[in-house]
């Protein structure tokens, strides 16, 4: 069973349609790239998978279940915004994650914080933006989830941090876990991807295995993207 499955998924806000007839699958042990220009519906799709939005039509399933309390136990979200409460420290946040998520690996989180030289006792609001993003990433990746949803994890981050984030994602690979990664920085991320979905104006414009697309088009995924989404 695919970890994440969308069947003719639709979402509209009033009159504007954010997603139309989106069907895709994310399998365990594979990294899926959700690629598209700004406003193409990537974040909407991710929010639907988290249960933060309700679909207007179609279905979305995580390990066969509709998004809800049960799926939140096996889904780890890294939002594209800073969502950590400012008055808490990384240590307090780890304790909170441990409290609420059975699959949280506190040891791994501590190790990663240590690796990056982040003071676990310092309150989040005193940290720089980059450090806050790293803490958020560490918390998300320290969960042994079935589905990782990473919304623009490398945008707005310096190149060294990007490399670190990409290698963290790769070393977190687990054979039964699927990673769905949305980004518009494709050239940086394409080596990471097993499968690719091009999302344009809420529709799936193209999809397939990354190497398959390279073979078929003779181009990199980045070049293919520029071609498909030429202004």
């Amino acid at each position: 069973m695919p970890v994440l499955e969308c069947i003719e998924l639709e979402k509209s806000y009033g009159r504007s349609e954010a997603l139309r007839g989106v069907s895709l699958k994310a399998e365990g042990g594979r990294i899926l790239g959700l690629l598209g220009p700004n406003g193409s519906g990537k974040t909407t799709l991710i929010k639907l998978a988290c249960g933060l939005l309700q679909p207007s039509g179609g279905e979305i399933r995580i390990c066969g279940l509709a998004p809800g309390v049960e799926t939140k136990k096996i889904v780890s979200l890294l939002p594209d915004r800073l969502s950590l409460p400012g008055y808490m420290s990384p240590a307090a946040l780890c304790a909170m994650y441990e409290d609420f998520f059975e699959d949280f690996d506190a040891g791994r989180a501590e190790r990663l914080l240590d690796e990056l030289g982040i003071d676990p006792a310092q309150r989040v609001r005193r940290m720089s933006r980059g450090t806050r993003e790293k803490v958020q990433l560490i918390l998300a990746m320290s969960r042994r989830a079935r589905l990782y949803l990473l919304d623009e994890p490398i945008s707005g981050v310096d190149p060294a941090a990007r490399d670190y984030i990409i290698s963290t994602i790769m070393t977190n690979y687990a054979p039964d876990a699927a990673v769905v990664l949305s980004t518009h920085l494709i050239s940086e991320a394409e080596r990471l991807l097993d499968d690719v979905v091009f999302l344009g104006a809420g529709r799936v414009v193209m999809s397939g295995g990354a190497d398959e697309l390279r073979e078929r088009s003779g181009k990199s995924v980045d070049a293919l993207f520029r071609e498909v989404f030429k202004c």
Binding site: S167, M170, T171, Y173, R191, L193, D194, D211
Partner: peptide, 17 residues
Amino acid sequence: VRELALEAGVNPNTMQR
């Protein structure tokens, strides 16, 4: 595989293939 993939900076599945 994992080590090779990390060294090469690629997805482990791709290295596996």
